[in-house]
Simulated scan of single mutants.
Amino acid sequence: MMVWLALPLTAGLYLWVKMLARRYKSPLINTIMLPALIIIAVLMLTGQDSSAYQTGTQPLNRLLELAVVAFALPLYQQAAKIREQLWPIVLCCSLSALISVGTTLIIGGILHAKPELLASIATKSITTPLAMSVSETMGGIPAIAAGLVIIVGMMGAIIGFPLLKIAGVVHPEAQGLAMGAGAHAIGIGAAAEVGPVQGAFASLAMVVSGIATAVLAPPLFHLYLWFMQ
């Protein structure tokens, strides 16, 4: 039964939460987090197999793969601004990746975390496919990496802009870069809802941060292992 209900349930929950978000304007009413929590609850309460739900939502997965191409449109619209600030953007996103991986390894070392767990956590701020691939090359667990990416993305979408407001970050380009570098694709969705400039720079930050993490994470991780020996 879940195979047939999965698609209308997912779409219906998304539209319902979207309507609530427009009405109440609360960061806690998130169009990704709330439907996901409700669907998890439904699967647990009814005892349905999650694989049946995945099968039922395959059409949405196919559309999602195509929709990723739409990220190129805001980048094209903001191409002039991006060209003017390209190297500062690359530097900031690379530093963001360095800080993300570095702090993970430092805190993990203090807590004596297992290397495979650290390898899974270190890629928490980049998009899921890349995080799974990079963490696996370091000996991590792809499933844990994917789960952490989703959690970090949802947290960024919920508290990202309120934190930026508290910190006094009001520049649209800076807001977009922060959301894309810290909360990847989910952050891009939240940034795009705020404005086209934020969405474009968030898309760029996700790409640059992903590349920087893929380049920096393995050598930093191996350096950490050598230091801890």
Rank of each mutant, 00 (worst) to 15 (best):
G180R: 00
R22F: 08
F221V: 00
L45A: 14
L63T: 02
W4E: 07
I151D: 09
Y53C: 01
V149I: 04
A143I: 12
G156N: 07
T104A: 12
V17A: 09
I89Y: 02
K124W: 09
L220R: 01
I40Y: 13
S203D: 07
A143C: 06
W16I: 14
L111T: 12
D49G: 07
A21F: 06
L105A: 01
L37N: 08
Y14F: 15
G182L: 07
C93F: 04
L5G: 14
A72D: 08
M19K: 15
V215H: 05
G156Y: 01
T55D: 14
G108K: 07
A146Y: 10
A131T: 02
P172S: 05
S209Y: 00
G176W: 02
I82L: 11
F227Y: 15
H112M: 12
P88D: 03
L5D: 11
E173W: 08
N30S: 03
A200C: 10
I151W: 10
A146N: 11
P27G: 06
G176K: 04
G160L: 01
S133I: 11
Q175H: 03
A146M: 11
G147L: 09
A79I: 15
V17D: 09
G147W: 04
P172A: 03
C93K: 02
A119S: 01
M1K: 14
A21Y: 08
G160K: 02
L43I: 12
K124H: 14
K25Y: 13
W16L: 15
W226K: 14
A52W: 09
P115I: 00
A214M: 07
L118M: 11
I106F: 12
Y53G: 03
L111R: 10
T10R: 09
S203A: 13
P74F: 00
M19N: 15
A52Q: 15
L75K: 06
N30L: 05
T103H: 08
P196H: 05
L177D: 04
I211S: 04
L220N: 02
D49F: 02
R22I: 02
V42G: 08
A113N: 10
T213N: 01
S96Q: 08
L86G: 03
V169Q: 01
E65A: 13
Q54T: 06
F201W: 03
R23A: 10
G210P: 06
Y76P: 08
